[in-house]
Design a protein around this nucleic acid. Structure first.
Length: 881
RNA sequence: GGGCGGUUAGCUCAGUUGGUAGAGCAUGUCGUUUACACCGAUAGGGUCGGGGGUUCGAGUCCCUCACCGCCCACCA
């Protein structure tokens, strides 16, 4: 006998172990089946499971379990990311606690320490995923720095280098002075801060008493100024162009140049140019051949290119000192308080980044981006929701060279060697580099690659590339990629580029961009705010199933979701409801009957539930396929409560109590069958409780205990059961019961009694009332007079009253109105299409340039559209009869 | 500056090709009958942000305004 409630704590661990032991998660077990593959976004080894992971992995697991039950050969590829900066920071911090440092330790020892840390505590998140029920193929777990993936990274780097797409360049990068490494544009977080705009007066050379005023938010950079720019059309400064100013403090003479970059509307219209420390100024400097002065050391202090008084000062100190000195010279005209965005590091958001002149490795991603754009434009990869394709497009269309080198130690070391003259040799190994440079002494580049470089290869490197493994052949391109919007640039776009370049095909057919998870008040979760919700606490409190179901049902396409205990609790209650429905079945001896054929049932209620199951299966299937998880879960939820519990089981009560033994036996078998189908439909969402019920109901049924696991069961068929008449009849009864308001007093009883009233035991008075209600409802369906206007949906009245439809049943008339509108819409679409093709074909430019086959194709399409239009027109006419 | 999203019941949100507005929670009332108080029945509560348009019919499509949020860019 089942307990009154399900206890997740006691069962989840046991069931998960059973699944793992059974090998159910393993891919490749159905060589003849259609493959289905999802690549997990590899969590950082430094990570702990947060609610966003919980959401993303729940959605992936739903898909994976669903497709597995549908019979596909499923691979959910897992693994972790080495997370260069984050990991290096953690280990450095640990070293600091023991009074050690990375630099003192040296590269080799430090890396040993990192690997040690990784082995000891780097896999926590993978264990946490198991608690959610994630059914990934753990036997294939990979790590971005394991041997195989590292080989893929080397190969990609070497090939891109040989194709001229990877190169070294000296230009401004975003520099993190604390970590002393370059970071890519994407890793810059612009934060609005309160600051000041200082107006500095620069004296004009040979014109004592005359100044040109420039405005700046970073006065300390004036020490690196090499020009002042004004707009060529700016009348105020026209006579100054070509003259020089005396740069204060630095005691240098710098020119005044005319450049479009200068905006007369902004500041004073004159702008100081610091090519060494500003991206725009760098361009201006290039245009005017200005010298570039780097005034910073790698740690952000001022270097020897500034006057002695400022050398060694931090940026903050330098700003104060420079301003004080300028004040003393009365060269500060005014100070305005402003709020402006300042670039910060994305990890801690505490370090101000500096544009800094260094030599770095770059990847020219432009040619790769073009292919990635085309693949989405062509629909070879689609986004859900579609809007995100725009985000993807806009970034790729304006893509900049990707700075791929990082001055860190933890990561894939760049496979480039230098000889004494500094000549570069890029090779798969040191030995190979030596072959290229016989007899030379080679030293390896000390930099490592951006972490996202290896992530970009994930969809094929995890499958064994560059080897041509059977997994690569079978599972690439993968089916669905699920992720949050914030890594479309970092990851999705780069996987597209690398996949298309090296595999000559998209890495995945569909991209699911899910919403973000907020706390119960709708605030973004953050450690500093202390409102972070630990998904595992919710699992402890309500069970993994309840959390999963909550996440799935909140996974709409647009709005951010809010999650917290008050949202999860109702779904724990839902699990209990399901549990008790099964308990009810048990109490009434509903046993799964071997060979039960739902098509053979005879009782109206049983025929009805068979039809409803098919309907629910169809809806759940369609919704999961369309990645509408909220709809899919709502369908099952509604089915369990409103169809199965409230009506079917209630209707079953009088049958179980009655004397008709045949009906009883059939209903027991049907109830057990329906319950089993329900468990299957719900399994992707709530795997634990359904698996447990699957096992427990087999036990209690006594006959032929099930040996199979639910996870391996077949997905319910959505095929129509042919019981539509029974379905309609039951709907009629249900609507009637719901609709009988006038007998509310008598009807304020459970559905079982209502049904009994309707079907059997009603007293005469009630029967009479019910009969009257029935009559009213039946009459409604025959309305054809002016009364219709009051009762009918607005607008349909016209059709009802029109001569063509007079006297026809209401339902038919509404159907007619719907059908006509649909056809007219389609007709309009067809006409629009014709117009489009006509416009195109009459465009001289197009006709002149397009090759003949394109023209033919357009003409054919035009003819097709015209044919469709004609067909629709005829359909409309036919309908009117 | 460019783009995207949101605005629906007291609260949090669904609402897939336009067809008589839904759920959970909260609230009121009644109830404990073969599962379920982590329960059941039932009720109240919405001019779907404002305005305009298309349509027989608009939460849904178009235009416009307002407010909120996010992304990108700029940031003298």
């Amino acid at each position: 006998m089942l307990d009154k409630t399900f206890d997740p704590k006691d069962t989840e661990g046991r069931i998960y172990a059973q699944w793992e032991a059974s090998g159910a998660f393993k891919s490749g077990r159905r060589p003849d089946a259609e493959p289905f593959c999802i690549m997990i976004p590899p969590p950082n080894i430094t990570g702990r499971l947060h609610i966003g992971h919980a959401l993303n992995n729940t959605l992936q697991d739903i898909l994976v379990r669903f497709e597995r039950m549908r019979g596909k050969d499923v691979l959910w590829q897992v693994g972790t990311d080495h997370a260069g900066i984050a990991t290096q920071l953690i280990v450095e911090r640990q070293l600091a606690e023991r009074q050690q440092s990375r630099v003192a330790l040296g590269r080799e020892k430090f890396l040993e320490a990192v690997w040690k840390w990784k082995d000891e505590s780097g896999g926590a998140i993978i264990q946490q995923l198991r608690r959610l029920g994630a059914s990934a193929d753990w036997s294939r777990e990979r790590f971005t720095m394991d041997e195989g993936l590292s080989r893929a990274v080397l190969k990609v780097f070497v090939e891109l280098y040989r194709q001229g797409l990877i190169y070294k360049d000296t230009r401004l990068v975003n520099w993190d002075p604390r970590l002393q490494t370059a970071v890519s544009d994407l890793e810059v977080e612009n934060i609005e801060v309160k600051g000041h705009l200082w107006y500095l007066k620069y004296p004009i050379e040979n014109q004592p008493g005359r100044f040109i005023t420039v405005a700046t938010t970073r006065p300390e950079t004036m020490l690196g100024d090499t020009a002042v720019a004004v707009h060529p059309d700016d009348e105020r400064y026209k006579d100054l162009v070509g003259k020089n100013v005396m740069l204060p403090l630095a005691h240098r003479t710098i020119p005044i140049v005319a450049d479009e970059h200068s905006d007369p509307e902004k500041g004073t219209g004159a702008v100081k140019i610091t090519p060494g420390h500003d991206f725009n100024d760098f361009e201006v400097g290039r245009r005017h051949n200005l010298p570039l002065i780097n005034i910073l050391n790698k740690d952000g202090t001022l270097n020897d290119n500034v006057p002695e008084a400022y050398r060694g000062l931090s940026r903050e100190e330098a700003r104060k000192t420079v301003l004080a000195d300028l004040e003393a010279l009365e060269l500060v005209e005014k100070i305005e308080p402003i709020t402006h965005a300042v670039p910060h590091d994305e990890k801690t958001k505490t370090v101000v980044l500096e544009p800094f002149m260094t030599e770095q490795w770059y990847c020219n991603v432009k040619p790769l981006a073009d292919k990635a754009l085309k693949a989405v434009e062509d629909g070879r990869t689609t986004f859900t929701p579609e809007n995100w394709a725009n985000t993807y497009f806009s970034w790729l269309r304006n893509i900049q060279p990707w700075c791929i080198s990082r001055q860190l130690w933890w990561g894939h070391q760049i496979p480039a060697w230098y000889d004494e003259e500094g000549k570069i040799y890029v090779a798969m190994s040191e030995a190979e580099a030596h072959e290229q440079a016989p007899g030379k002494t080679l030293t390896r580049d000390t930099d490592v690659l951006d972490t996202w470089f290896s992530s970009a290869l994930w969809p094929f490197s995890t499958l064994g590339w560059p080897d041509e493994t059977k997994e690569l052949k079978r599972f690439y391109p993968t089916s669905v990629l699920s992720t949050a919007f914030d890594i479309i640039f970092f990851w999705v776009a780069r996987m597209m580029m690398m996949g298309l370049h090296f595999m000559d095909d998209v890495p995945f057919h569909r991209v699911l961009i899910h919403t973000r998870v907020l706390d119960e008040q709708g605030a973004k979760m953050s450690k500093t705010k202390g409102n972070v919700i630990d998904p595992l606490e919710l699992v402890d409190q309500f069970g993994a199933d309840a959390l999963r179901f909550t996440l799935a049902s909140a996974a709409g396409l647009a709005r951010d979701m809010r999650i917290g205990p008050s949202r999860v609790e109702p779904n724990r209650n839902f699990a209990t409801k399901l549990w008790n429905a099964a308990r009810f079945c048990e109490m009434n001896g509903c046993a799964t009957r071997a060979g039960f054929d739902p098509a053979t049932v005879t009782q109206t209620a049983n025929k009805w539930i068979v039809a409803e199951i098919a309907q629910a299966a169809a809806e759940v299937t369609a919704n999961i396929e369309a990645l509408r998880f909220n709809e899919a879960s709502a369908t099952v939820y509604h089915f369990v409560y409103d169809v199965f519990c409230d009506w079917y089981l209630e209707i079953a009560k009088p049958i179980f109590n009655g004397a008709d033994e045949n009906a009883k036996a059939e209903t027991r078998a049907t109830a057990a069958w329906a319950r089993d189908q329900l468990l299957k439909l719900l399994h992707p969402f709530m795997p634990f409780i359904t698996e447990e019920l699957w096992a427990r109901t087999a036990e209690m049924d006594g006959a032929a205990p099930r040996t199979s696991l639910l996870i391996e069961a077949d997905w319910p068929s959505a095929a129509a059961s042919g019981n539509d008449a029974a379905r309609a009849e039951m709907h009629w009864v249900i609507d009637l019961v719901k609709g009988v308001r006038s007998v509310r007093a008598e009807m304020n009883v459970p559905p079982s009694v209502k049904i009994a009233l309707l079907l059997k035991d009603a007293n005469d008075a009630t029967r009479e009332r019910l009969a009257r209600q029935k009559e009213v409802i039946l009459q409604l369906a025959r309305l054809s007079s002016a009364d219709a206007a009051d009762v009918l949906p607005k607008g349909t009245a016209q059709f009802v009253l029109g001569e063509a439809t007079a006297g026809l049943p209401l339902g038919d008339v509404i159907d007619f109105a719907k059908e006509r509108t649909r056809l007219e819409k389609e007709l309009k679409k067809a006409h629009d299409e014709i117009a489009r093709f006509d416009a195109k074909l009459s465009n001289e430019n197009f006709v002149a340039r397009a090759p003949e086959e394109v023209l033919t194709e357009q003409r054919e399409k035009r003819a097709e559209a015209a044919a469709t239009a004609a067909r629709l027109k005829e359909a409309v006419a036919r309908l009117a009869e």
